[in-house]
Nucleic acid binder design. Structure first.
Length: 364
DNA sequence: TACTCGTGGCC
DNA sequence: TGGCCAAGAGT
């Protein structure tokens, strides 16, 4: 690996690159809530929220989250229901369940101080190579690489690297390059500057090369192939699933909701009872599902909504029915009857928020 | 390694 | 309009 890296670095003016990159960052960086913070816990939370998520989406969640859980201990001591509720709508919900578990471990094992050693911090749940480098460099000034999609795009262009960034192994190549060129005096700004450059200038399509502070170092710009990089193979679009859901109410107007399994898609979020079906006899299949899975007799009436929800890897085609409960319901930890006002306390995926929005438009 | 795991915005 | 994209990690 070292020989390969040495080949990339041949003729590369590392110190000039560092200086020009960091000076640009000091001039042009965006003001973001977490950039005012030095608390490693807050830096950590921001990095987890930012995984696969746009800055503009994260900002209001970050601010609300910090009001509700201002310290590591506050988060560690919080109920998971409230933590999930604070994450509602952000997606990738295992991030916050892992963060919650990790913060508890930091409280117990490390006395509430976020570890500043990569070997320790990276063992925590939900903390991978990127988050390790980001938190250690930004919060503690430690020169660890923080290679995200921005960094791979920027460096693939600068060093004219044609490796497929969709392959998981490719990231290690970029980590080795960052280790070789990171500014040991300013690792936080160096890492952030690479990402900020990718977010503002060296964007995926039509990069603004004429505004780029390091274009004199950029080999793909010199060759005129910057828009062909990075190489990223396409992923196949996900499968479609037909889902039937129902908003069923009892004689008091309470709504039946179900808590999803603790593993897999949308883990531990609440939903309106639903099942996957074949296209025929949807109503009957769902009525049988209520009886078999929950022991609840229901009478379904007619559909009030049909909606499609597209995930990154699959598609739900949902038809939602009105329904009434016949007889009794045995409530459990994962099956509850709640009033319409109480629904707001439970975290729902966006697809089921849509179902509820449609339901509330009813005129019957 | 390749697949799973959300959501909103963009052109 | 639909495919692509976004400060990835777990398995």
């Amino acid at each position: 690996m070292n020989e390969k890296i040495a080949l990339f670095l041949e003729g590369f003016a590392t110190e000039t690159f560092q200086r020009e990159l960091i000076q640009w960052f000091e001039r042009e960086q965006r003001e973001l809530p977490w950039r005012k913070e030095t608390d490693p816990y807050k830096i950590w939370v921001s990095e987890v929220m930012l995984q696969q998520t746009k800055v503009d989406t994260v900002i209001p969640y970050f601010q609300q989250f910090m009001e509700q859980f201002p310290t590591l201990e506050a988060l560690a001591d919080a109920d998971e229901e409230k933590v999930l509720k604070a994450w509602e709508g952000l997606g990738y919900y295992s991030r916050v369940r892992n963060l919650h578990a990790a913060v508890k471990e930091v409280k117990e094992r490390y006395g509430g101080k976020v570890p500043d050693r990569a070997e320790e911090f990276s063992k925590l749940k939900g903390v991978g190579p990127y988050t390790t480098g980001a938190v250690l460099s930004i919060a503690y000034g430690i020169p660890e690489p923080a290679v995200d999609g921005n960094v791979m795009r920027v460096l693939s262009r600068i060093f004219l690297i044609w490796e497929d960034i969709a392959k998981s192994k490719t990231r290690t190549l970029f980590e080795a390059i960052v280790r070789a060129i990171i500014d040991h005096d300013h690792p936080s700004y160096f890492n952030q500057a690479l990402m900020e450059l990718g977010a503002l200038i060296c964007v995926p399509r039509k990069p603004a090369c004429l505004l780029c502070p390091v274009r004199s170092h950029c080999r793909s710009f010199r060759e005129g192939v910057q828009e062909q990089l990075p190489v990223k193979t396409k992923k196949t679009k996900g499968k479609e699933m037909d889902i039937v859901a129902a908003v069923v109410v009892d004689e008091k107007g309470r709504v039946l909701i179900h808590k999803r399994d603790s593993d897999g898609l949308l883990a531990n979020l609440w939903e309106f009872p639903n099942c996957r079906v074949a296209s025929e006899n949807r109503k009957h299949q769902l009525e049988s599902f209520f009886l078999d899975m929950y022991g609840v007799s229901v009478t379904l009436r007619f559909p009030f909504a049909a909606l499609q929800h597209v995930f990154s890897h699959l598609v739900w085609n949902i038809v939602a029915y009105y329904g009434k409960i016949v007889g009794d319901v045995v409530e459990t930890d994962r099956l509850k009857l709640v009033s319409e006002e109480e629904l707001g306390q439970y975290a729902f995926p966006v697809s089921h928020q849509r179902i509820w929005e449609q339901y509330q438009k009813r005129e019957i």
